[in-house]
Nucleic acid binder design. Structure first.
Lengths: 215, 215
DNA sequence: AGAAAATCGATTATCGATAATCGAAAATAT
DNA sequence: ATATTTTCGATTATCGATAATCGATTTTCT
């Protein structure tokens, strides 16, 4: 009988490689522009080129990296323009989410308000990472309330574009102002005013776009 | 001096495979649920497993197919619900495009109107394929006018979900009604009324959702 | 010296073969 | 006869090696 080492591996090697590379890109170990050389990574992780290549293929699809034929793969660089564009798209997606999901959201009002409060609290204390965490959570709740899987995935596909830029720019400028807007949004949800929620979310994203500095 | 044969092959094998498989999925050669066996395809095209596998990876990312570890890949089946969801998302994307791009669009009003007219003409003659073609073209023009690359790509990523369902359901019900709405939209563009264009487009997509029958 | 051509090292793209895994069918046990 | 285990064929996942291509460097020619 074969004993599976510890069976931590229910996933394929390629999946694990993908996860590792994703982490490194997100946490800044591989900054924008870094070349990802297949055999280098393969040797480091003690495996062959194939699973690495597959992981890179997935990362390219998620637009984390760019690949040119015979020229290799590098971590994608996200410009101010692209980030602005992504914010505009996200804004309407969240606006839609609001109109679809305000009713559901109202049922979980307590939770939503908690997220908003946590965001504000972190902002006031200047705890950037915590602030970002709760901020994401707040928006995520809104998206999930819409109960529209296509919407959720589409929204998530923009997360990297937006997130990378935020981290890069350290644009934590007016965290407090942003967090306060969350409370406004919570109030609109409490009143069940879907249109208002949508409008606030769209404006919310627009403000963030304005507040973005060039790097 | 090197003469590049005819440079028909500037793309990798994997790219070509991807194109071939995409075509077959879109044109119905591989209906939903069809298994895509790597070595089978490789033998048919006289190449090894690797490029086929890479192509499948790309198709999975585009959500044309689904892959389960050690269980293979099959053409994705798109349900009524998912299609409805995709339409809702598309609707707000086009609404955004309208508000961003109505000014640009106005400059190309003649072209837009031509597309709308062609759609209506095809609808009246019952030429389904031509109708679909011009219909897509019309919406594409609106998206492109917005001059927002993230928006364009996001919109395009929904094309399969929506298109597959349309072909499957043969839901050509009220082509004429749809085409007539296009003319309304053209008029709003002519007046430069971005808000109205946005509203019309959102309603436009909603109507299509209603008109969708279960298969 | 300066431009064109040949060479070279590094890396990707592809190949052919093997290992791992799955589902179903066959064999065995109760 | 039914339930459990074993075997088997098919297919995916991974490997190691080779071919193709690229950019830079060196060489050659004028």
């Amino acid at each position: 009988m074969k004993v599976k080492s510890v069976d931590i591996a229910r996933e394929s090697l390629a999946d694990r490689v993908r996860q590792i590379l994703t982490d490194r890109i997100v946490d800044g170990t591989y900054p924008a522009g870094t070349r990802l050389v297949e055999m280098q990574i393969a040797r480091e992780l003690n495996l062959s080129q194939a699973p690495v290549r597959e992981a890179l293929c997935a990362l390219e699809a998620a637009r984390f990296v760019e690949t040119e034929p015979y020229r290799g793969t590098r971590v994608r660089r996200i410009g101010e323009r692209e980030c602005r564009e992504a914010y505009q798209v996200r804004a309407v997606l969240e606006g839609l989410a609001a109109e679809l999901g305000t009713a559901n959201l109202r049922a979980r009002l307590r939770e939503l308000r908690a997220a908003a409060d946590a965001t504000l609290a972190a902002a006031k204390r200047g705890e950037v990472m915590r602030y970002l965490h709760h901020n994401v959570r707040f928006h995520q709740m809104i998206i999930e309330a819409a109960n529209n899987e296509v919407l959720r995935q589409t929204w998530e596909s923009l997360a990297f574009t937006v997130g990378a830029r935020i981290r890069a720019s350290r644009a934590t400028g007016d965290m407090i102002a942003v967090a306060k807007e969350h409370r406004e949004i919570v109030e609109a949800v409490a009143h069940g005013d879907a249109r208002a929620v949508g409008r606030l979310l769209r404006r919310h994203a627009e403000v963030l776009v304005e507040g973005m500095a060039e790097v």
